[in-house]
């Protein structure tokens, strides 16, 4: 059988080094080139078999692109390539300081509605969350590059923290939507 060219990992599909740091422009450019080659629209006149194959290939490329373009998903994926599972249900003990901060952030979020200027309060909260996400993401790059057992453990913990912050950010976005609808 012919080797499946897309059987490699997500980085190999795009011909990119398996690193956390990544050129988004380059990724997007190669994504478009690959889709131009395999997208089902290119095979609209082909036989049923070729059309099915095109759907599968295009789906594979979409999947790889979704993972690589999102820093958190990319970090999780790199950890998996290193044999580290993020959501294995083990070693879930979190840094108590971080948990404390999370509780404070959640409290701040729940108090937004009662605030005299809810939108301003929410904007401040967004800034706070974004800054934390940025700091953690910066750490991740170095840890994943070093890739020592110790560094990978740290990276895993930081990915978990980022998941917390990501969920918080989602909830803040939903609240923002609610507030806007209320004004609408």
């Amino acid at each position: 059988m012919t080797a499946d060219l897309l059987s490699g990992n997500h980085f190999e599909i795009f011909g990119l080094p398996a690193r956390f740091a990544l050129d988004q422009e380059q990724l997007a450019e190669r994504y478009r080139e690959l889709q131009r080659a395999v997208h089902p629209d290119r095979y609209a006149n082909a036989g049923a078999q070729e059309r099915r194959l095109a759907v599968q290939r295009a789906a594979q490329i979409n999947e790889a692109f979704q993972v690589l373009r999102d820093p958190l998903a990319r970090a999780k994926y790199l950890l998996e390539l290193h044999g580290v599972q993020v959501d294995d249900g083990q070693n879930t003990a979190m840094d108590p300081v971080f948990l404390m901060e999370q509780m404070e952030l959640r409290e701040a979020l729940s108090e937004v509605r009662g605030h005299a200027e809810p939108q301003a309060a929410l904007a401040r909260l967004f800034q706070d969350i974004s800054a934390r996400i940025q700091d953690l993401t910066a750490l991740l790059g170095g840890e994943l590059d070093r890739a020592t057992p110790d560094a990978l453990r740290q990276a895993r913990d930081n990915v978990r923290k980022l998941q917390f912050l990501g969920r918080l950010r989602e909830e803040a976005l939903e609240l923002e939507a609610d507030l806007e609808e209320g004004l609408g």
């Binding site: 012919t2 060219l5 011909g15 190669r30 690959l34 131009r36 078999q49 070729e50 194959l53």
Partner: peptide
Amino acid sequence: VARRMNTSIQQAMAGHKV
């Protein structure tokens, strides 16, 4: 058919692959 699709992927990636 599979080989052809691989060829077109290869062409799309020409020059990019290490």
